[in-house]
Nucleic acid binder design. Structure first.
Lengths: 342, 342
DNA sequence: TACATAATTGAAAGCGCTTTGGATGCCACT
DNA sequence: AGTGGCATCCAAAGCGCTTTCAATTATGTA
């Protein structure tokens, strides 16, 4: 069943049927009803390729999937993708996923753009001074960045969470609880969010005249193994930190293992706040000691970015170019007053 | 730059240029060279939508991304996707990813198929008597299943690993080492691979007149938390098992944590063999006690399935309908002789 | 009643590619 | 010289949709 057959069946022209389907105003409401009814009965579905050829829109958004160690099989990637997909399916959009080595990401992105089978690009894993930004700007294709690029002029469309604010708030909570010795388990150093989170902690501490020792910062991949290692290191420090800020619940998982193995009690000897991306497999409330977290749903971010991307392609009204989402600080049992003595 | 322009530039017809590009035999080698050269110089890339409209091929493979708890953000999904993508990019294929609740998977798959923007379907997370199989057969669209469906006639195209053989071999190794008390940490009960792995263990044990107690089997999600819980349970059993078979290195991670916390030594008090999907984040050789594993790369499976799918769409020669990959048994330090006494 | 205006509808021209059904020229072979 | 076979190449017809331009009918207005 195609447009021609459908229009013959209705005794209308293809033009009118097409217009009825695409919501053009110049078609009589009664005829539109008839068309819609016929669509329902016949199960007609417009041919995507033809639409695309006629309109020039591909109905798809492109993204590069980094595949080097450390990015590969990143749980965060999957979760974000679920969000993108959730929105995409509502608009009959799909993804063009191009896998690429992170070293090749700029080129991969360009290839994707000129391949002609995407309408818009999505970019993540932003770094400080990210080289993809100038490339994206030179392309004439809509894009939205997840995160930001520290050090670059913020004149590109992005959706980010307030990483600095989140970790500032988290650090303040711990300060109010009387903690003075802090440690930060962070993501890889070159990543934008890691830079900002660190800044958030530093500025909260600075207000109390405290500093974050370099020895008390770890920059690692977001795996629980790395979390454990980092925490083991912290626990061996002569001035053992009592307040831990943790860039991910995945890291926290390992960290807590280390705390337990050291015979320390979470929420008493050690207070910990983790950032929670709302990964369904790792709920902070299900930890044996429920985790205090700064929360922001990665999946929701995926939905929103898909909305903006698709909306832009469909030219459906203006979207804010920059969005900065606040995170929620949720206090659970992993934070408590600083222990009175060592 | 489109075909018309390119052909005018060359002083050839569109027909000839098209044929030259698509490897048809009836074009002079010299002219083909000229065309290829011009393509290189102009950077011409055929318009996907037009090709698709003309040929009816979309150049994409569809897959349903399950999003319910337990499937969501599955590390295995991401890893497999990396493999699919690796091959897809070579053929300028892309994915249509449709997220769906597992309850809705049959319907989602059908929607994807009739949406008209995929040429082939990929299906995973197979179950016993999987209801998607009859649906797929009724569709006239190529597909390949990752895994199999226990209890269904094996007359559909699949790629599976020899789960039964893998766990049979693993169990035999442990038997040869003198172990007699076994436990199996398995995936969810309804999943095909879990059924087969269990069968493999049971038949190896049966050869020695041993049985696998129901109490010594866990069926859980493949998370390290579940692994830890399961192992804790096993360790509390009156007749504590000394030989553990584990469906995933992710489960093993938690299991080993439990072993350590119980003060037991891996490879001495407890021998453990895990199935290794070759997840880059969780390498068995990097465990503090390197893990004996049955290995089969999930990513390689992704590559192969993409090959078959794309090959079928392009009608590039016949592919085997059914493939069963052997796994490698790799002995490392987590297996040792059965302890002499409790 | 006559005429401008608005509301609907259609015919037909693409979008850029593949492919069918010839052309054309050249050669070998009767 | 006449014929068939090959190797090359091309014109043109779609593929199924959107959209421009034009036609037709209905609605007001003077």
């Amino acid at each position: 069943m195609n447009l021609k057959q459908l229009s013959e069946l209705l005794g209308l022209s293809q033009t009118t049927v097409s217009r009825a389907l695409n919501g053009y105003p110049e078609v009589n409401e009664a005829t539109r009803e008839r068309v819609l009814q016929a669509v329902k009965e016949t199960g007609y579905r417009p041919n995507k390729a033809a639409q695309r050829l006629a309109t020039g829109k591909a109905g798809s958004i492109g993204l590069v999937m980094p595949t080097a160690p450390g990015h590969q099989s990143d749980v965060h990637f999957g979760e974000f993708l679920a969000g993108l997909g959730e929105e995409a399916v509502r608009h009959d959009f799909h993804f063009v996923i191009m896998p690429a080595d992170p070293d090749d990401e700029v080129a991969a992105l360009r290839r994707l753009a000129i391949s002609g089978n995407v309408d818009a690009l999505f970019v993540a894993y932003m770094r400080g001074h990210d080289p993809r930004l100038p490339m994206l700007k030179s392309l004439s294709m809509p894009y939205v960045v997840h995160g930001r690029s520290f050090g670059s002029e913020p004149d590109y469309p992005y959706l980010d969470i307030d990483n600095e604010g989140a970790f500032y708030d988290a650090a303040r909570l711990l300060l109010q609880l009387g903690h003075t010795r802090f440690a930060l388990m962070n993501g890889q150093m070159h990543l934008d969010f890691a830079i900002r989170r660190k800044n958030g902690v530093i500025s909260a501490l600075a207000e109390r005249g405290l500093a974050l020792d370099e020895d008390c910062i770890s920059h690692t991949l977001m795996t629980d193994e790395q979390g454990q290692l980092a925490m083991e290191h912290f626990l061996q420090l002569p001035e053992r930190p009592t307040a831990i800020l943790c860039a991910s619940t995945v890291l926290a998982l390992g960290a807590i293992r280390a705390v337990n193995q050291a015979g320390l009690r979470l929420g008493e000897d050690i207070s910990l706040i983790a950032h929670d991306d709302v990964l369904p497999l790792l709920k902070p409330e299900n930890f044996s000691v429920p985790l205090t977290t700064t929360r922001s749903s990665l999946r929701a971010a995926g939905v929103r970015i898909a909305q903006r991307l698709i909306g832009t392609v469909k030219q459906a009204g203006p979207f804010p170019e920059q969005e900065l989402w606040k995170t929620e600080l949720i206090v659970r049992a992993s934070t408590g007053p600083a222990p009175q003595q060592l």
